[in-house]
Design a protein around this nucleic acid. Structure first.
Length: 485
RNA sequence: GGCCCCUUGGUCAAGCGGUUAAGACACCGCCCUUUCACGGCGGUAACGGGGGUUCGAGUCCCCCAGGGGUCACCA
């Protein structure tokens, strides 16, 4: 079998959109599954919008996700260059061939003239199609105008009858009427190719075998097929996945919150969670299963698992997945992931790494995003300055609360080893002696130590906090309660 | 507006002519439990509408409606 070669060809817009990320993921999985080649190509012929930073945003996003490419702008490869802005000579070669073959022609119509044609069409309520005014200019006329310094565009000669069929691997055969096509522009007056022409030349010259992309490109495909034909080239196979929509069913945009992978990263999501979530958005293995690692997806991935209907993304499920992954990673890695947050910088400078790792061990598994971690760590790293109001009402107002806290103080002082299991045993025994439920000791203690009503398991918290801090906070709580009376 | 694609619970989605129409997230109960989270158990909730074809239709065909995409010297 012919080697599989797929590509991800984004235009550099500064960041990697999650729709693009999913397209990249599907291509990557397909390449890996068939031991093929995944190429990254930057479609930066729109000189105005393309900058070095904007391509870096794409590259960063892919790298963060862990989707590596085999050929690309930074890596090179046998079919480079991999940014369109460096491929002008290649486009020109194909353009010249088309002109020479009489399959495309120079068009000198000005945008004003075109504007008039469009208006006329609108007035007559018919669809606009270029009038083909320049289609039959003689060689001499063309030469003259070129001499005069006119900068023409190049248009392809489109058929006006018949149909073009896209054999889509996901949707089956999709038929388009050629009569709807016009002699569309394939090269701009500045000499650069337009999108439809550039993709074709690039995909063909890079020997792409499967074009896996989003549905927005389906309607463009007949045009591309026309170009393949004019060029005498074999088209690749096409697979058009549906789009990712916002919760209100409209196209995803800024107003819907995070839409780029870097935004998700900044909001505390893990790459494996985002990847897992994206894989399930518009694709299904058919298996009853939600959690997948990248590597597990490779053998399972298949084009016919891609769905035809658009998928609305649901941040709740992503968040759930993120929580799942967060609960399973090592505290070493956790610390590494959050070490650049301001709050963490501070903690890192004040506490030994070992201590923070212990704290993360307790806290990491009950949080949904990375960004919630500093707040969850707070009472481990800062003094308790206030107590949860409801908690006070509930646990600090009982008649015997001072007794209880003093008893706990006693335990803390006397525990032979300051370990969770030891403390727990002592406390439970003591509760029995006092004929109280353990919970009656636990709640006020938790509030005294953390200022909160909910924390990780109290005895683990105590162990990590250490004897001294526990004592100090317990005494502080006693003083607080006494001052309230 | 023309053309194209799509339509199973709120969301993702299984299903590929015969099922009590899976599962996950979210939501609601209950259990576990020192709180929270986790986990376990259970529950609410769906085939857009109308015609066909067929013994039988979520599954096939047609129409309608709705949603999305596309029609640039953007990609």
């Amino acid at each position: 079998m012919e080697e599989v070669r797929v590509r991800f060809a984004p235009s550099p817009t500064g960041s990697l959109h999650i729709g693009g990320a999913r397209t990249a993921l599907f291509n990557w999985l397909f390449a890996r599954k068939y031991n093929g080649i995944f190429v990254l190509r930057l479609e930066d012929t729109d000189l105005l919008r393309s900058t070095e930073e904007s391509s870096q945003g794409i590259v960063d996003g892919l790298q963060w996700l862990g989707l590596d490419w085999d050929e690309g702008p930074d890596k090179g490869g046998t079919f480079g260059p991999y940014r369109q802005s460096e491929r002008l000579p290649i486009y020109n070669k194909y353009l010249d061939k088309l002109i020479a073959d009489g399959k495309a022609y120079y068009c000198f119509c000005t945008s004003e003239e075109l504007q008039q044609e469009k208006e006329a069409a609108r007035n007559q309520k018919r669809d606009y199609k270029y009038s083909r005014r320049c289609r039959d200019l003689s060689a001499r006329e063309v030469e003259e105008r070129l001499q005069q310094g006119f900068r023409p565009v190049i248009r392809i000669k489109a058929p006006d009858s018949g149909t073009t069929v896209v054999h889509d691997l996901i949707r089956g055969d999709v038929e388009f009427h050629n009569a709807l096509l016009d002699d569309f522009i394939i090269a701009k007056s500045d000499g650069w190719p337009t999108y439809n022409f550039a993709v074709v030349v690039d995909d063909a010259s890079m020997k792409i075998t499967h074009v896996i992309r989003a549905e927005e490109h389906l309607s463009n495909t007949p045009k591309q097929l026309l170009i393949y034909e004019a060029l005498g080239l074999n088209p690749p196979k096409f697979a058009h996945a549906s789009m990712i929509l916002a919760p209100d069913r409209s196209k995803l945009s800024k107003r819907h919150g995070a839409t780029s992978v870097q935004e998700f990263r900044d909001e505390g999501y893990l790459p494996e969670a985002l990847l897992n979530y994206l894989a399930l958005l518009g694709w299904s293995s058919g298996e009853d299963r939600d959690l997948w690692t990248l590597n597990e997806l490779i053998p399972e991935f298949s084009l016919d698992g891609i769905s035809r209907s658009p998928a609305i993304y649901d941040i709740e499920k992503l968040t759930w997945m993120n929580g799942h992954y967060l609960g399973n990673i090592s505290s070493e890695r956790l610390l590494n992931l959050i070490k650049d947050q301001d709050q963490m910088q501070k903690y890192l400078s004040e506490y030994p790494r070992e201590y923070l790792l212990q704290v993360l061990d307790l806290v990491g598994s009950r949080v949904k995003t990375l960004n919630e971690i500093p707040a969850a760590m707070q009472y481990f790293c800062e003094d308790v300055e206030s107590y949860d109001t409801k908690g006070v009402a509930k646990h600090f107002t009982k008649a015997n609360v001072l007794d209880i806290l003093n008893t706990v103080i006693d335990i803390v002082e006397k525990a032979p080893q300051f370990e969770a299991s030891v403390i727990e045993d002592l406390l439970r025994q003591q509760a029995e002696v006092m004929q109280l439920k353990a919970a009656e000791l636990i709640h006020p203690t938790r509030l005294a130590l953390s200022g909160r009503t909910n924390t990780p398991g109290l005895f683990e918290v105590m162990e990590v906090l250490g004897r001294e801090k526990c004592l100090q906070r317990l005494k502080k709580a006693v003083a607080y309660i006494e001052s309230q009376e």
